[in-house]
Design a protein around this nucleic acid. Structure first.
Lengths: 146, 146
DNA sequence: ATATCTGCAAACCGTTTGCGGTGTA
DNA sequence: TACACCGCAAACGGTTTGCAGATAT
């Protein structure tokens, strides 16, 4: 397999980082990290649980939640609550981006606009605030061209 | 009292609009509309319930939720879930705006940027999507100047 | 008169937690 | 060995819902 260290955090990267922090790499955690490594989508806890169970049916939902919280506190994943729905998780790999959510499929598309980013900064500044974090989500449907 | 029809939807405006839609204006609903008329903040269901009870202690939390859903479906209020927390409601009065949430106080400051708005449109367009709605929230703390 | 609405309490759903046992370091 | 971790089931907090009685039109 080609190395891809440039893309940042792969599952095994996390393993070393977590190990270095004195966190035990258990079987459930290894499985969950493996699932998150796909990075193809933004699964919720239930979906992660489902996928994990296909690998090891003894995994519990509680462990999924505990592991997600662990990884979140560790800064390895971000938690989103799109449109007030259940949490969905995303592996953090350095580059900040915002999200466009396909209302028909639930699919999440990432995008980034440096201009918007700067405008946000500017607005907060004018209001006398320092931004800690922000959240920009576009909800839409695929344009149907004839 | 001075009239302020220019500001748009006052509680009594809603009463007529709701009545016109065949919805009964009951005592609980009148009270909740009155509370929402303040528009001073973005209260959650529990807070609306607390305020309503000070006026009529027999009001139930279930009715608050039912009324908020009714008003939401009616397009009279928007529901927000800032940072995944419980729903907070806001009376809709025509002008669209986004939110800056004070992380220390929970206070919500409204702002609007036509430029950001246009950029969002443009981004969605490039991705082949039509935006149905969007959500821009800045979370920050008051800048402490010496 | 009657369909809508209410309060109450129970159900619900996503998430967290206390427990006693298990497995990693 | 020792402590972090697990699965289980119960608890949790916010929200919704079924019911039988009350109320606006």
């Amino acid at each position: 397999m080609a190395e891809n260290s440039a893309t940042g955090a792969r599952p095994d990267d996390f393993e070393s980082r977590l190990r270095a922090a004195g966190i035990r790499i258990t079987r459930p955690r290894k499985i969950i990290l493996e699932i998150l490594g796909d990075k193809a989508d933004h699964p919720g806890a239930a979906e992660i649980y489902r996928r994990a169970q296909r690998i090891d049916p003894s995994i519990s939902l509680a462990t999924v939640y505990r592991t997600m919280k662990l990884l979140e506190d560790f800064g390895a994943v971000h938690r989103h609550a799109f449109d007030g729905g259940p949490s969905r998780f995303e592996v953090v790999d350095g580059d900040h981006h915002d999200h466009l959510i396909d209302l028909d499929t639930g699919k999440v598309i990432e995008f980034h606009s440096e201009t918007i980013e700067r405008l946000q900064e500017q607005i907060a500044d004018e209001l006398g605030y320092d931004i800690e974090h922000h959240r920009l989500e576009l909800y839409g449907r695929k344009r149907r061209e004839r």
